[in-house]
Amino acid sequence: MRIRRVVTTREGGASTAPYDSFNLGDHVGDDPAAVTANRDRLARELGLPADHLVWMEQVHGRTVGVVDGPVPDKLEATDAVVTATTGLALVVLVADCVPVLLADPEAGVVGAVHAGRVGARVGVVPAALKAMVEAGADVDRVEVLLGPSICGECYEVPQDMQTDVERHLPGTACRTRKGTPGLDLRAGLWRQLADAGVAKIGIDPRCTNEERTLFSHRREGTTGRLAAVTWVEP
C-alpha cells in the first residue's frame, strides 16, 4: 500500500495577517470563512473529498481516536488519531509542537499525533503506537516522520521544567543557543520510538521558530497553524 504524507507551509492561502496566509487552524481567531477556504483548498490539492480529512480538537493530552470513516466536524479533546481505512486523511495542526506521522504500509494502518511538550511528556506517542498495533499494525514495520517543530536551540524553558520533561521523556534535555536550559522534543521522541522498537524514523529538520515560511507561536504569539497529513491511498 502507498502511504502519503504532506506538510503544509503558511503560503498560498486566504487568511490575512497575522494568520497569513494558509492557516488551517479554526481555533486561533482567524476569519472562519478564510479557514474554510484554506481547508477546502487543502482537500483539493490532496485529491480527497473535504469530508475525508479528519481533524482533532487538540488539547495537549494523550487521548487517541480510532476512526473508520469520515468524522463530522472534528474529534473532541483528542491529540492522536489512527485509522486502517484507505482514503481517510488524518490531520494534525501545529505551530511549534511536533507533528508525528506514523504508518505500517503492509497493514495499511496510519496515525497522526500532536506531540507538544505536555502531550509528549505524558506519552501520547506510545498511546498512538499501541492503538495502531490494536488496529493491525506491527511495530517492526512502522515508519515515522517527526515533522517541523521548534528546535532545541530555540526552545528555552525553566530548569525545573526541563528536569521534569527529561524525567518523563529521556533525551529531551538540551542547551539553547544562549546556553540556557532547553528542550529538544524531537530528540526525545526519536529515542522513545527507537526504544519501542520502531526502526524507521525520519526527521524534518526545519525549525518553526527559525523558518519564516512556517507558523510559530513562540515567535509570533497570535498566528496560524500548519498541517501534517497522512493517509493510505485507495
Score class of each variant (00 low, 15 high):
residue 131 A to W: 08
residue 65 G to R: 01
residue 185 L to N: 00
residue 71 V to P: 01
residue 145 L to M: 08
residue 193 L to P: 04
residue 219 R to E: 15
residue 2 R to C: 00
residue 175 R to M: 10
residue 173 A to R: 09
residue 201 I to W: 09
residue 97 C to H: 13
residue 183 L to G: 07
residue 138 D to I: 02
residue 94 V to M: 13
residue 134 E to I: 10
residue 31 D to A: 14
residue 55 W to D: 09
residue 99 P to H: 04
residue 219 R to P: 08
residue 22 F to H: 01
residue 1 M to T: 13
residue 94 V to A: 13
residue 131 A to D: 10
residue 206 R to V: 10
residue 109 V to C: 09
residue 191 R to N: 10
residue 92 V to K: 10
residue 135 A to Y: 09
residue 51 D to C: 13
residue 160 D to V: 04
residue 108 G to A: 12
residue 166 E to W: 05
residue 19 Y to Q: 01
residue 1 M to L: 14
residue 75 L to M: 04
residue 96 D to K: 12
residue 43 A to D: 11
residue 96 D to F: 12
residue 182 G to W: 07
residue 150 I to P: 03
residue 28 V to A: 12
residue 124 V to C: 07
residue 117 R to D: 08
residue 20 D to I: 00
residue 46 L to E: 06
residue 229 V to G: 05
residue 232 V to Y: 00
residue 185 L to V: 13
residue 172 T to V: 03
residue 211 E to L: 07
residue 170 P to Q: 06
residue 147 G to P: 06
residue 52 H to W: 06
residue 1 M to K: 13
residue 41 R to I: 01
residue 8 T to F: 06
residue 95 A to H: 11
residue 140 D to S: 15
residue 93 L to I: 12
residue 51 D to P: 09
residue 117 R to P: 00
residue 111 G to A: 05
residue 161 M to H: 13
residue 143 E to S: 15
residue 71 V to F: 01
residue 179 G to H: 06
residue 30 D to I: 08
residue 216 S to N: 13
residue 193 L to H: 04
residue 139 V to A: 13
residue 5 R to P: 00
residue 87 G to M: 03
residue 86 T to A: 14
residue 95 A to I: 06
residue 6 V to F: 09
residue 109 V to R: 04
residue 118 V to S: 12
residue 115 A to L: 09
residue 93 L to S: 11
residue 38 N to K: 07
residue 46 L to W: 08
residue 120 A to Q: 00
residue 132 M to I: 05
residue 164 D to Q: 12
residue 169 L to C: 03
residue 50 A to K: 12
residue 197 G to C: 02
residue 22 F to E: 02
residue 74 K to I: 01
residue 232 V to P: 02
residue 204 D to H: 13
residue 33 A to K: 11
residue 139 V to E: 07
residue 119 G to F: 05
residue 216 S to H: 12
residue 92 V to T: 15
residue 109 V to Q: 11
residue 87 G to S: 05
residue 182 G to L: 09
residue 222 T to S: 13
residue 2 R to G: 00
residue 34 A to T: 05
residue 199 A to R: 15
residue 169 L to F: 02
residue 81 V to L: 02
residue 17 A to T: 04
residue 119 G to A: 15
residue 130 K to E: 15
residue 42 L to A: 09
residue 57 E to G: 15
residue 120 A to M: 00
residue 32 P to W: 13
residue 44 R to Q: 14
residue 66 V to A: 10
residue 68 D to Y: 01
residue 209 N to Q: 15
residue 94 V to Y: 12
residue 49 P to L: 08
residue 120 A to F: 03
residue 92 V to Y: 05
residue 233 E to H: 02
residue 24 L to G: 00
residue 156 E to N: 04
residue 158 P to F: 06
residue 34 A to D: 11
residue 122 V to A: 00
residue 217 H to P: 00
residue 111 G to I: 01
residue 32 P to M: 10
residue 19 Y to N: 01
residue 170 P to L: 07
residue 119 G to I: 07
residue 233 E to R: 02
residue 145 L to K: 03
residue 20 D to K: 05
residue 133 V to E: 11
residue 219 R to C: 10
residue 29 G to T: 14
residue 45 E to N: 07
residue 155 Y to Q: 05
residue 7 V to Q: 14
residue 154 C to V: 03
residue 112 A to F: 08
